[in-house]
Design a protein around this nucleic acid. Structure first.
Lengths: 358, 358
DNA sequence: TTCGCTTATGTTAGCGGTAACGGCAGCGAA
DNA sequence: TTCGCTGCCGTTACCGCTAACATAAGCGAA
């Protein structure tokens, strides 16, 4: 009553600037506690809805907090409680459309768990991935969801030592650090090869973006080749490109490969976007799709629905992968080190209108 | 020498579990300091590259940190230093393609400032925006970049009281809380109207997504109508839709509006994606574009490059907006409350091939 | 030699919260 | 009345790190 301890005793440095009139001083629990006449601890309890507090006190505190416009400091809270409600999500790109969808699945699943995703983008660069992981782990998140299984040894070590649950997503062809949720791209490639061969196509070309670090695309191609090999076939031609508008690249590559190898009867694209470009080009240039020339992409993006003809593709279970990954993180009790689950989802071929019906 | 204080005196609760053999105990500065035989402060200095440390000591410390796989705890660091290297970025959606691009501009600009963007998505919902802002502000970021100027009163208050620099982006038609970087969508609409009228079109229809909360689209439409009014015209018909694949919606809406009002000679779409769908539909159905029927969209997404004909559009300066916003945040000295800048960029019409040449 | 300055390192006191525990009414049962 | 319990709230001791202030050694100049 005769004077609050601490607060009005000028201490040092910037503390001096914190005169009671200075409304720009950041608010703390103490301000709320003084305004409502209870201890900081009680305020903390009210704001976190934890422990017993009488209704009347609760009201007072909430009112004071609202009046002051108090926003709790999670930094302090996290340090004290050793709990952080963040989940790191590391993906190679945001412009690929596929990744925002995975993210959508994660967010939706996390929505009522109190956990919050924080996104980091690697641009397909291993060094960047290391930086992003380091940065994220330094915030001691409750979990990490990382795209792909291929990481530098340093990155793997960081994840392993971090003590937080890790889920590697999108790909199951390989060894994970902890849990894994995804599809087998190798198998996906084989499956598509089988379907194409079964439909009677024989002169098959592959078109992809030149991304040595897109391991999933690479595995798909490898699987595809294996699948062809089983039927005694091999790729008749391939075409790679990088950068730029995928739709446009799809056109250009298609023109290029068909003028180089005119007798191709099927084009397999490493993703739907270039596939769509290819499809548009083929239709404009009078190809009889799918009789004369079959086409297929990969991913099952819903952009395809607006195309003149539905491109054959394969769903890559993106939302579901995100959801499952989030479930694993959310379900894992705090740092209780349980073994890594591996969940392999099975993509389904959507034949569309660009592959001959059996 | 005779025994480390603290560490080997069992204290209480979980501390007991922290035996020296337990390698899963989280590492702290202390571990590194013990391993390298210097004080925690010196380790801290080395890891942050701050203050004078002899080369030999630096080496020792770095070696120890590497050996142990130590990752600094930013939570503690931030609390102690009152500095957080995070910038909150709040956008309505990730699947709109436009927003990842803004984000790209922000990231690129922030890349060598030590600052890191953290993304929050509002799904165009004001309540969700409040939650996201609250959540972000509770981490005391160095700045906030928020899409749009329309926020709930609560949200504006939070931003104002937060004491961090705020940049509202994408839109300059209205009052901002602090700084603003964007384009005038109203003016953009007028400008497009003027161009269309100048090209001789008179029976003009508008097609947009039914999103009452997409204020920028609304302002564009209002500006467009104003522009038409100046020429003594008004919209001949409109069509709205929501949800689903934008490309497909574009087709459906185009078909709908043209069968209802067949004498339209121009269709203005609220974004490029539905515009692209419309373009495909028109071409397939034998419309003579742009002679008989002109088309235009908005945004200037590079997807358009792959279309059979280049859709007329208007660049929305997305990367540049992101870059400028990031510059403001990065350039603002810590919480030095300087006045809010307003930067209005000027979008340029890209006539493409779907509007008659003057 | 002494002073003053620089360089390299350690010590102390928090940052703003929360876990854990303590204390004290109020109240029904023994 | 006494005990034990529950409901409510406060006190204390940190969480892991860094700002600010010692401290100590080395060295050239006065």
């Amino acid at each position: 009553m005769f004077g609050d301890r601490k607060e009005d005793v000028p201490q040092k440095g910037f503390r001096l600037a914190r005169s009671p009139v200075d409304s720009r001083r950041p608010l703390t629990l103490r301000d709320v506690s003084e305004a409502s006449g209870v201890s900081e601890m009680t305020v903390s309890r009210v704001l976190r809805n934890r422990g017993d507090v009488s209704d009347s006190t609760r009201e007072k505190v909430l009112e004071a907090a609202r009046m002051l416009g108090y926003v709790p400091n999670k930094i302090a809270g996290a340090l004290a409680s050793q709990r952080v409600n963040l989940v790191g999500v590391v993906i190679p790109s945001l412009s690929n459309l596929v990744f925002p969808e995975v993210l959508g699945g994660i967010s939706a699943e996390l929505d009522d768990t109190g956990l919050q995703p924080v996104v980091g983008v690697t641009a397909y660069l291993p060094e960047k991935e290391e930086t992003v992981l380091y940065e994220m782990l330094s915030w001691r998140p409750s979990g990490m969801i990382v795209a792909g299984l291929e990481h530098s040894e340093t990155a793997r070590a960081m994840l392993r030592n971090s003590g937080v649950p890790v889920v590697e997503i999108m790909d199951t062809d390989g060894e994970g650090v902890d849990s894994v949720v995804g599809i087998s791209h190798r198998r996906a490639g084989r499956q598509m090869a089988a379907a194409i061969v079964a439909a009677g196509y024989r002169r098959i070309g592959f078109l992809g973006t030149k991304m040595p670090l897109d391991h999933r695309a690479r595995k798909r191609l490898e699987g595809f080749q294996e699948g062809l090999a089983e039927a005694g076939l091999q790729l008749a031609d391939t075409e790679f490109y990088s950068g730029g508008s995928a739709l446009k690249k799809g056109r250009e590559m298609t023109q290029a490969i068909l003028s180089r190898t005119p007798d191709l009867d099927f084009l397999y694209y490493s993703n739907d976007m270039i596939g769509a470009g290819g499809l548009l080009w083929c239709l404009e240039n009078g190809y009889d799709v799918p009789r004369q020339l079959g086409l297929a992409g990969f991913n099952g993006v819903d952009l395809l629905e607006g195309l003149p003809r539905r491109l054959a593709t394969m769903d890559s279970c993106r939302r579901e992968i995100g959801a499952k990954a989030a479930q694993i993180i959310a379900g894992r009790p705090h740092s209780g080190v349980i073994g890594g689950e591996v969940i392999e989802l099975t993509p389904v071929i959507q034949p569309g209108d660009t592959i001959r019906r059996a």
